[in-house]
Design a protein around this nucleic acid. Structure first.
Lengths: 424, 424
DNA sequence: ACAGTTTCCCGTAAATGC
DNA sequence: TGCATTTACGGGAAACTG
């Protein structure tokens, strides 16, 4: 049975893709006298949207034409389930050019879904109306990260009144607020949020070396502007990492084996004092959705060699299980293959002890073929001291905002009708 | 501009996937007096289909509601272009159980598209009607190979009258006929058909060791029944190879570097007399869409070592360019990596001479990362004489059936209306 | 229960619109 | 012309349905 969820994408509610079904539930919170009248609930998209706010218009397709008066007493209350999808009204008379010449992109355009019910009881005409939190409508999954950024940002900065024109003036968030949301995003996608060291690195990325919790982050810096020297914005980068974790690194991340967010400077300071072969895993800052490992090798020089491998992205991780990459990685110099330079996961966990359970069994079938593996290899060309804090544990990251607006993301959309219905 | 093509899939015409657009063109072959009357052409799906032949019913969706009387004089004649798609009529009253309890699968169900035109000229009422070759309707690309098998088989064995019930009794094809179609399929998907040695191996696979050109192949053997000991039928196997060539091996195949279809026995006879390091490429008979290389190594024993690598399938070839696999392949024994055992492409072409131009440049960017490659590796466990006919050239394989029914596959659907329209 | 068939929908590529 | 947005549809998987 389908989980009611105000979204076409489970991980990112309140984002709706046209042509993709989503389901939602309206619940009447007061107990009504046990009358089996038919409560008809009508859904309207962008019911009272003031003109000029949205450049696009949509209509609702009730895909399986499930009657709108299906009643469901399962939870004790009276509720209606809807499975809907949206389709865009082509060439609507709308004011495409009105909204400031696309200073606001479609993923910043907020919409809403309204539920209405009318009935008569004891000769009294009752009109109920409620509507969803602001929604973002997209036409392709490629817009999902941007849309989700909007949903997060809106809910971070809005508590009470609905303000569909919010992104005309999207305000700022303090780092204290934003960092909680970021950590929460990791908890939602995995079983592990972000620890203080990881958040520190992210904060420096957004706000510079020295920042405080009360420093403010602009929406443009969070989502719109590219990171200096890069072709993507902060959130697009971070979201690509969330996706990489979700699809390819879940066990490794959940085990806390990925330091992940650590600057190259800190990385060097951490590794240089460690034994040769000590390595750590971090996400690439230059490639979208990439993970790399960096290891230290002490030679004859005073300064140890510290090298990082070209980041692994989803295309390679689709062909190769990441723990196996760590197990099998080899170096070639002058045509000679040396052994795996990765020995200890930082700070000092023997590689196989950490990753042993995560390796894939080698499929050594007894077939007429010689099994073949892809071995990740690098051809070698040639070749600071914050206390090496052991990876802080972060077993149960606090979920910020738990009872607040974001809570509804995992719950059913539940519309309080109390304030509309006179209680009796 | 869209290429008119009676299919939703360019390589496989006459197969239509529901919900996917296809285009078609009807052309009036006689010259009409230069009158600009509106020739309205109506399309009907399965117009006069006798009941019980098809278990499913479809209707036509004229997706961009392009008027049906668009006239086009570009080719000198009068023609109409259609862009249509099909949708299935849900729960039609049809006789789902009538057709022999699914002895006939949906990909064996033949349909047709009918074009009608009515007009009056010189007080004469003229009715024109023509229809397409039999069509197969599918709902998912996964059904495409099966559907295409039906289209090929139908057109191989039917010339004149339309027989939509054909697969109630699908007849047999001689090997002479079938082998031409198979070779032609390779020509269509690449620039190279099959040579006699390759066809010989395929014939043995279908008909056993000793067969002649006049031996007959049953439809069930060609498509329905699994190859003994395998989980797929002959055509499904061959089609998976066509797809592998099209997506991952096109230049290699076109250069005639893939022997491809050769039995393991013949392979051994060919290689055992060759220098150590001689290898050949052939398609896997046990895995769908797999290619392997087999090489010979002469040791101290009288009998040389002949080994094949575990086949490469699309999942690996997506991550790794196949010529690079040949360039980089390594063996490991006892932890020591030996050099590439592949030296000469059979019969005696030095590997780099054959594949040199096909290698990918290694992306040695000057970035802070150490570039990493995936190296295909095998861990070694331990370790006949048909004249080694050099690979016969097959530069311009004959396209069988060129002017026949199959020709229309690449052309526009062109309906002769001559026999309906009285000439004057 | 299960196999054949269809639906669903992500993700890439191409088309379209502005 | 280039960028933003939408459409198209292959492909894997889930859902459906007899």
């Amino acid at each position: 049975e389908k989980q009611p969820c105000m979204s076409t994408h489970p991980q990112k509610p309140l984002v709706i893709k046209t042509g993709v079904q989503f389901s939602t539930k309206v619940r009447l919170l007061v107990k009504l006298p046990a009358v089996d009248f038919n409560l008809k609930v009508k859904t309207t998209f962008d019911k009272d949207l003031s003109p000029g706010i949205a450049s696009r218009q949509f209509y609702i397709v009730t895909n399986p034409p499930k009657s709108m008066d299906t009643e469901d007493f399962t939870n004790g209350g009276l509720s209606v389930d809807f499975t809907l999808s949206l389709k865009d009204k082509k060439n609507s008379n709308s004011s495409k050019t009105h909204n400031g010449g696309s200073l606001v992109s479609v993923t910043e355009e907020l919409h809403s879904l309204t539920f209405e019910a009318h009935f008569t009881i004891h000769g009294l005409n009752i009109d109920l109306e409620t509507s969803s939190l602001p929604l973002v409508v997209i036409s392709n999954v490629g817009q999902l990260p941007a849309a989700w950024a909007s949903v997060m940002w809106y809910n971070l900065l809005n508590d009470g009144d609905k303000n569909l024109a919010f992104f005309g003036n999207p305000g700022r968030a303090t780092w204290a607020q934003l960092s909680e949301v970021l950590s929460w995003q990791f908890s939602v996608n995995s079983n592990r949020g972000l620890d203080q060291d990881q958040l520190q690195m992210l904060g420096e990325k957004l706000l510079g070396q020295h920042f405080s919790n009360s420093d403010q982050v602009y929406w443009s810096k969070f989502w719109k502007e590219n990171i200096p020297g890069k072709a993507f914005s902060f959130w697009i980068w971070l979201d690509s990492i969330l996706e990489l974790i979700r699809k390819h690194l879940l066990p490794v991340w959940n085990q806390n084996y990925i330091m992940g967010f650590v600057s190259k400077e800190t990385e060097r300071l951490l590794l240089r004092e460690k034994e040769s072969g000590t390595f750590l895993l971090r996400f690439s800052e230059s490639h979208l959705g990439g993970i790399t490992f960096t290891w230290v090798q002490h030679g004859h020089n005073a300064e140890p060699d510290i090298n990082s491998v070209e980041p692994y992205t989803k295309s390679r991780l689709t062909a190769l299980h990441f723990p196996d990459v760590i197990r099998d990685y080899k170096l070639i110099s002058d045509g000679v293959v040396t052994e795996n330079p990765l020995k200890f996961l930082y700070p000092d966990i023997p590689k196989d002890e950490a990753f042993g359970q995560l390796y894939n069994k080698l499929p050594s079938q007894a077939n007429p073929y010689i099994p073949s593996t892809l071995i990740p290899c690098s051809e070698m060309r040639n070749a600071g001291a914050k206390p090496p804090a052991p990876l802080p544990r972060c077993d149960s990251p606090e979920l910020p905002m738990t009872p607040g607006a974001f809570d509804m993301l995992n719950r059913t959309l539940c519309c309080d009708m109390d304030d509309v219905l006179p209680c009796y």
